[in-house]
């Protein structure tokens, strides 16, 4: 997805302006001779406004040659669109449900669905997903004590912990 500089430039300028406004709202520091939390962000904001303007100017000069937005061929393939959607959806699903479902269930669903979308092989995807989740669970949760969420399986945490 290529977006013309004529669109990106103003976005960067806007970001810089937001940074400037946000830094002006920072409280005055208790200590530190007047250099508060807004000092540095303001400098960065000015920089963004400046570079954004240059970018806009570049885009304006090339406005005839460069389309506003250009997509590569994946946008026309339903399968590839779905691929991208599934990756993002799988991660969102994990983020939203992992504390409730727990790593084992939420992780498995995210992994299995993504793999199924990529491979279109249900059985193989199922086996590989189960194996991967089992390996990750044992190595990280049980051996290295990473506190992956238990979620629904919390009551069985004692039984399911391999030591």
């Amino acid at each position: 997805m290529k977006v013309s500089d004529i669109v990106l430039g103003p976005i960067i300028v806007a970001l810089g302006v937001i940074a400037l406004i946000a830094s002006s709202m920072q409280p005055r520091p208790i200590f530190g001779g007047g250099y508060g939390g807004g000092f540095f962000p303001a400098i960065v904001g000015i920089g963004l406004v400046g570079t954004g303007l240059i970018l806009s100017w570049n885009g304006w000069r090339e406005r005839a040659a460069v389309p506003l937005v250009a997509f590569e061929s994946w946008i026309h393939s339903r399968r590839h669109l779905a691929n991208v959607a599934v990756v993002i959806a799988a991660l969102l699903f994990y983020i939203l449900t992992s504390s409730w479902l727990g790593f084992i269930i939420a992780g498995f669903i995210s992994l299995f669905v993504t793999m199924l979308q990529f491979t279109r092989a249900p059985l193989a995807s199922f086996i590989v997903s189960v194996a991967t989740i089992a390996v990750v669970k044992v190595t990280f949760q049980d051996m290295m004590l990473v506190p992956l969420p238990w979620g629904l399986l919390e009551a069985y945490a004692g039984v399911l912990t391999w030591r």
Binding site: S98, S110, L111, T114, M115, T132, I133, V136, M144
Partner: peptide, 24 residues
């Protein structure tokens, strides 16, 4: 095949990002 590898990497990334500070 990358069609299997990429989702597996994805799940490792989830665990790796989480494990740095133990936060979602």
């Amino acid at each position: 095949p990358r069609s299997y590898l990429m989702p597996i990497i994805m799940i490792f990334c989830v665990v790796g990002a989480f494990a740095m500070d133990n936060t979602l």
